[in-house]
Design a protein around this nucleic acid. Structure first.
Lengths: 203, 203
DNA sequence: GCTTAACCGGACCTTGGGGTCCACTTCGAG
DNA sequence: CTCGAAGTGGACCCCAAGGTCCGGTTAAGC
């Protein structure tokens, strides 16, 4: 797992400077707690649980996020920022194929341990916009790798996302979070995207 | 979609001959209704909904299945029998690689349209036993294809299952049920399992 | 047709988790 | 220090969905 500078995942919401200091503090504790709790127990974790973890009353959570869904979404957006940063880093590397390979490894690790990223990002249309940035960057990596003949002609960044998320989810559903296993599947995904071997089976 | 003889998916529960005829009839209507409703609305569909579809009261459903979970599980087992039959058919074909290819196509179609098969089978340990049969048969197909050099050396039947279910799920999560798309992904899965092209990227 | 046991189904209970209210507390400006 | 506005949190409401009960109904043997 490549470590990223903390700032790379920084916050985004504006005008919190106007709020009272305790409110600001609570808001951040709630976010942190939500990330923890949802990552541990999955999306079924209760709001009360998040509040407890943050050392705060339920109502306080609802003041920051009007609904549980909004909270989940905020967490998802936060996690997406991690992906953004990681993709950007990959884009900065020299060899696009190797960058993609390493990215997939890290992505799998994240997916396998983060139910929100794994199961909430794909189905939410509200998050489509939030993911376009990283998809575009990823697209450039894919293009570069393809131009060097390392990937099949029709591969897109969305393919990468679908295959990765899908496999990771299936593994988690099976209860298998073994690093050896998900690393192997990261490899399989890469193989799926590889140049169509002038197949052993011509038809 | 290959059509299978109706008998291939037949029922299994014993001693229903002892029950009264209306009970038996209701029981079957409930099963049929459950398959329909869950396939349409997903697992969140309510028991009352299933009962209504079967033209029956809620309590009658609960007489056949003591809990909603049991009902879902029964549906899952039913759907698994379809897979069993389809795999058996594939095993009877001559060319294992082509058999696998066609099987994947049919499997994707099913998965994309059946939330129960898609999302309930993998996580349920109670169903592991029910799936071993088809996994073994599928394993023989995979072995045969691998022996002919059509698949990479370390492929297992479980890999096929994980990749297929995963991709299909990701597609459904994205709301994409376009045949062209899932067919393409069936191809990608097959590519992932294909012989490791003596890669363009040696390292 | 009559009887009875099996069966049915709508009314009812219960639980749990999302979401609100308001009396109390705390920040921080003057 | 004082005071008012912002903030807090536990008690409370609500309602959807799982699961039960019992008076009425019906299959089926005689």
């Amino acid at each position: 797992m490549v470590s990223l500078p903390d700032g790379a995942v920084g916050r985004a919401d504006p005008d919190w400077s106007a709020r009272r200091s305790d409110a600001r503090r609570n808001h951040e504790q709630i976010m942190a707690a939500a990330i923890e709790v949802f990552s541990e127990k999955g999306l079924t974790a209760t709001v009360t649980e998040v509040a407890a973890r943050a050392g705060v009353g339920k109502a306080t959570v609802y003041r920051s996020y009007p609904t549980k869904d909004a909270l989940v979404q905020a967490v998802a957006e936060h996690q997406i920022r991690w992906v953004d940063a990681r993709v950007a880093q990959a884009a900065a590397e020299e060899d696009p194929y190797l960058a993609l390979r390493d990215f997939l490894d890290d992505l799998f690790q994240r997916l396998v341990h983060d139910p929100v990223l794994l199961a909430e990002v794909m189905p939410r249309e509200e998050l489509r916009a939030a993911t376009t940035a990283s998809l575009e960057t990823l697209g450039r990596i894919v293009d570069a790798a393809r131009d060097r003949g390392a990937l099949r002609a029709d591969v897109t960044a969305l393919d990468v996302r679908i295959l990765s998320t899908g496999c990771a989810r299936a593994l988690v559903d099976l209860g298998n979070r073994d690093p050896q296993v998900w690393r192997r599947f990261a490899g399989l995904v890469l193989a799926a995207l590889g140049p169509t071997a002038t197949s052993v089976r011509p038809d």
